[in-house]
């Protein structure tokens, strides 16, 4: 179990904490050392709104180890309102099918657990807005 890696990443995973470039204003997710737009090194932390839309998606039927209990599940490229594209699972789909262009919002969910004795890893997933379903 990569305990330290999960611990190090939990800000971005729990709450979509990325960065904003001091120089050009680009919003970055995941956070990185150098702005890909202008090569400026120092970045300010920036918490994303979690709102976005599905750019594309695929459904996983044969899941990798640690994710089998959720299969079948959909993974999407989500274009965040502030610009960056993130890859994440879609959740709470119920009987709905994912659609390209579908507005989604970030929720924090269980990503996986390391067996019955290891830690539970939490992180961002996306779902349709609550009011869009009713």
């Amino acid at each position: 179990m990569e305990l330290t890696r999960h611990w190090r990443l939990h800000n971005q995973r729990y709450s979509l904490v990325g960065e904003q470039c001091d120089r050009c204003g680009a919003r970055l997710f995941p956070p990185r050392d150098v702005c890909p737009e202008c090569a400026e090194p120092a970045q300010e932390l920036f918490t994303f709104s979690g709102r976005g839309q599905v750019y594309s998606y695929s459904t996983v039927y044969s899941a990798p180890e640690g994710y089998q209990e959720y299969a079948p599940y959909s993974v999407a490229l989500v274009q965040l309102e502030e610009g960056p594209m993130v890859t994440a699972q879609l959740t709470d789909l119920g009987d709905d099918k994912p659609e390209i262009g579908m507005p989604v919002e970030m929720v924090t969910r269980r990503l996986r657990a390391d067996g019955d004795q290891g830690v539970i890893v939490y992180g961002y997933k996306f779902r349709k807005h609550v009011k869009d379903i009713i």
């Binding site: 959720y70 699972q89 959740t91 709470d92 969910r109 269980r110 990503l111 997933k125």
Partner: peptide, 13 residues
């Protein structure tokens, strides 16, 4: 609850 929900995730929301 869905498969990826528990008291942690529900409390956060």
């Amino acid at each position: 609850p869905g498969l990826d929900e528990d008291v942690v995730t529900m409390s956060i929301e």
